[in-house]
């Protein structure tokens, strides 16, 4: 199973939302990182064939996904970033409906739906109407529907939005297991969602793929450039105005500031090993989350 993106480009009017994206996906977990507006959703929609590329194409095992049509969609599971439900359906109704669209037989669908509701922690709410659900419950139901057909290609657009910390951990563990032999592509602007579980990280900025590789290989780019400085409040403000600051935390009366800089930024600064968050800040410093 190999999904290839070949110079995939999407233009909205004159705005180029995605610029010639090349990538190869094989079973494994792929983290698509980027600030809001970077083009993550657009890229995932292209991969799901609900948006047509302006140019370029996506191929599964050498065949254009649009031409594969039903066959491609049969192998696909998709959690959109924004989507709606039928408010009067119960969680079970909804999953059974999606299962019928996915062509699953009725008996299997019932079992599968019940199992997935258990997995995403909605077993108790399975008979309740979706209009009574909270945002997080809807998100979990969305994840469940994506998994109904055991997709070979699972596309998740900001899957952790609305999940509480405990649910995030549970979700990460589930994905780690699922990605062993399936292609999982998940987008996020929250680094910790993909840190340590993604086999490969893709960093998307302003419609271009700026970085791609394993976590270790891409963070090595800023090795030796990350520093921690123990300073006063005034000095911290000065540092924030001068350098890219990844993090700052209070310790006693002082503030520990984590800075990215080619040179030693402060006389008492000590070098620290970089992490993915640092790299993200390096690329998206100054942009809104």
């Amino acid at each position: 199973m190999q999904l290839v993106l070949d110079r995939l480009t999407k233009q909205y009017g004159t705005k180029i939302a995605l610029d010639r994206i090349d990538a190869v996906f094989q079973p494994g977990i792929y983290g698509l990182l980027g600030a809001n507006g970077a083009g993550k959703t657009t890229l995932l929609r292209l991969i799901c064939d609900i948006l047509k590329p302006t140019s370029g194409e996506a191929r599964l095992n050498g065949k254009n996904i649009g031409e594969l049509g039903e066959k491609y969609r049969a192998a696909l599971g998709y959690l959109p970033q924004e989507f709606g439900f039928y408010p009067n359906f119960t969680a079970t109704d909804f999953l059974l409906y999606m299962a019928s669209l996915k062509g699953l037989n009725k008996r299997y669908a019932r079992e599968k739906a019940a199992g997935l509701l258990e997995t995403v922690g909605l077993k108790k709410e399975q008979g309740k109407k979706i209009k009574t659900f909270s945002g997080g419950m809807k998100q979990r139901l969305g994840i469940a529907q994506a998994l109904l057909n055991d997709p070979e290609i699972l596309i998740l657009d900001e899957p952790t939005a609305g999940l509480d910390p405990k649910e995030r951990v549970k979700f990460r563990n589930f994905i780690r297991a699922y990605g062993e032999n399936k292609i999982v592509i998940l987008s996020t602007h929250i680094v910790t969602d993909v840190e340590h579980i993604a086999d490969e990280i893709l960093i998307l900025k302003d419609g271009s793929l700026v970085k791609k590789g394993t976590e270790n290989s891409i963070i090595s780019e800023i090795a030796g450039c990350v520093w921690e400085c123990r300073v006063t409040k005034q000095e911290a403000i000065h540092l924030e105005n001068t350098f890219t600051v990844c993090n700052s935390k209070s310790e006693d009366e002082k503030i520990v500031v984590r800075v990215i800089s080619d040179q030693k930024p402060w006389k008492t600064a000590t070098p620290v090993p970089p992490c993915l968050e640092d790299l993200y800040m390096h690329y998206f410093h100054g942009e809104g989350q």
Partner: peptide, 18 residues
């Protein structure tokens, strides 16, 4: 209007039998 289109359209039969 209910924004269910992205869910429907990525299913096997969402574009045909549906």
């Amino acid at each position: 209007s209910m924004k269910t289109a992205p869910l429907i359209l990525t299913t096997k039969y969402g574009k045909s039998r549906q």
